[in-house]
Design a protein around this nucleic acid. Structure first.
Length: 441
DNA sequence: GCCTGAATAT
DNA sequence: AATATTCAGG
């Protein structure tokens, strides 16, 4: 049975890769080799030559996955099987040619290679994407710092691959990521440069700003940044983000504003996280798309200009800027339902206490209190606590009733949030594509 | 003696 | 470019 297999294989080898020819000329030999032949036998073929090939085939077949039984998770075998079939033939030919040099030696001295079975090169293994995915997951699971070949091997629990396979793959992945300033590639992650990645799934935070008799709710898309390398830079960014979070805290009204539709998005808003989760911090989004490419989120034509106006004036922060969407639901009931724990907001028609906005030159308050560029720049580094600076903002039509129009119909917050939060995906990730992030020191 | 990762080879 | 192998050092 096994012999039959081997024989078949040998025949295959012979038919596919050996060239039999009566011609001895170098040119013909080269031609044959160049077309993928792994050896060149001159007729009449002598028995020893065939025997040489045969022994080679037998020896190879012990490691050749083409002879293996494929088990459920035996990726090595599966992989190499598929390797045979498809476009990797070229590589295969190469590979065989390499072997052919040895094989030629073998033919000459078939005895001597029987001893050398330990020196056998293992079959070239190509990582199928599925397995690579598993690999990446394992690395994340273990933690990027702690992931070592052996550990990955254990976690992945895959038959037929050696530690070297994992070491090698880990190495190439690491090399790749260092060259491209990427972490281990993740589809939901966007490189920001210098080893900092942006987790593309947005979260929401909101900021409530109270002015004379009114409260404004600013929605803020929040993204996670994940460090893959470049610790210094990351720390720097984290520090600044932390400072920014300090600003937010000083007005004490940034919250995770998560609609019932996104219950799992309510964590991680606004603050740096410890390294235990792989160095994740959160950043705030992002108007650079408007500034750099003119692209702004598709909120609907009615508001695009105004939004662009505001966004365009945004001052960059931490090398990127944020996109705060002023959001007024038009009636108190709307936003009070949203603002859990802030039931007093907007309840008074008389002038309430002014918001205690401690404002530096942070982009956020500029954006929030700016009416879109026609007037009213904030006092430099000012603490706003006396004047109704926000009047223009408050009375800006743009800020009023946007929820209904933005999503076209319902005025349902969930709908709006759904649209907004999914925008990056709807827009095919365009929001992150222009690549002008600049984290350079 | 094992494991790792850098260097090197293929 | 991707994978394998080697090797010095922990």
């Amino acid at each position: 049975m096994i012999k039959t297999c081997l024989f078949t294989m040998w025949v295959t080898h012979l038919l596919q890769e050996e060239v039999l020819s009566a011609s001895d000329e170098t040119e013909t030999v080269m031609k044959g080799i160049n077309h993928g032949a792994c050896d060149y036998l001159v007729k009449p073929v002598r028995l020893e030559q065939l025997r040489g090939i045969w022994t080679h085939v037998v020896r190879n077949s012990k490691t050749d996955p083409r002879n293996s039984i494929i088990t459920g998770n035996d990726y090595a075998d599966q992989n190499l099987q598929s390797l045979n079939g498809d476009k990797n033939e070229k590589d295969g030919a190469n590979h065989n040619r390499k072997h052919s040099k040895k094989k030629k030696k073998d033919v000459d001295g078939a005895n001597e290679d029987k001893e050398n079975t330990t020196t056998q090169k293992r079959q070239r293994f190509q990582w199928p994407s599925e397995l690579h995915h598993k690999f990446v997951e394992a690395v994340y699971q273990i933690g990027m710092d702690k992931s070592a070949p052996k550990k990955i091997l254990e976690v992945m629990n895959v038959n037929g691959l050696s530690r070297e396979n994992f070491a090698s793959h880990l190495q190439s992945v690491q090399l790749m990521s260092s060259q491209r300033n990427l972490g281990i590639p993740r589809q939901d992650m966007e490189p920001l440069g210098h080893g900092v990645n942006l987790l593309k799934a947005p979260m929401l935070a909101y900021c409530v700003v109270r002015f004379w008799g009114q409260a404004k709710v600013f929605l803020l898309k929040t993204y996670q940044m994940i460090q893959s390398s470049s610790a210094d830079l990351f720390n720097q960014v984290a520090r600044e983000a932390h400072q920014f979070a300090g600003h937010c805290n000083s007005i004490n009204s940034w919250k995770a504003a998560v609609s019932s539709r996104f219950p799992d998005l309510s964590h991680n808003v606004g603050m740096p996280k410890g390294p235990s989760q792989g160095n994740i911090i959160n950043i705030n989004q992002l108007s650079r798309l408007a500034a750099s490419s003119g692209h702004i989120p598709n909120f609907g034509n009615v508001y695009q200009n105004q939004i662009a106006g505001i966004i365009g004036k945004t001052t960059p922060m931490i090398g990127f800027s944020e996109q705060v969407v002023p959001f007024n639901f038009g009636s108190n009931t709307h936003y009070t339902t949203m603002l859990i724990g802030n039931s007093d907001l907007g309840s008074s028609s008389t002038r309430p206490a002014l918001p205690d906005l401690q404002i530096d030159n942070s982009v956020m308050p500029n954006q929030m209190l700016n009416d879109g560029g026609t007037s009213g720049n904030l006092p430099e580094g000012g603490t706003i606590n006396q004047q109704p600076v926000g009047d223009q903002v408050i009375n800006n039509e743009f800020l009023v009733g946007t929820s209904e129009k933005q999503n076209g119909a319902s005025g349902d917050l969930d709908e709006f949030l759904a649209d907004w939060i999914n925008e990056d995906y709807i827009n095919n990730g365009d929001a992150f594509n222009s690549g002008d992030w600049d984290f350079a020191p």
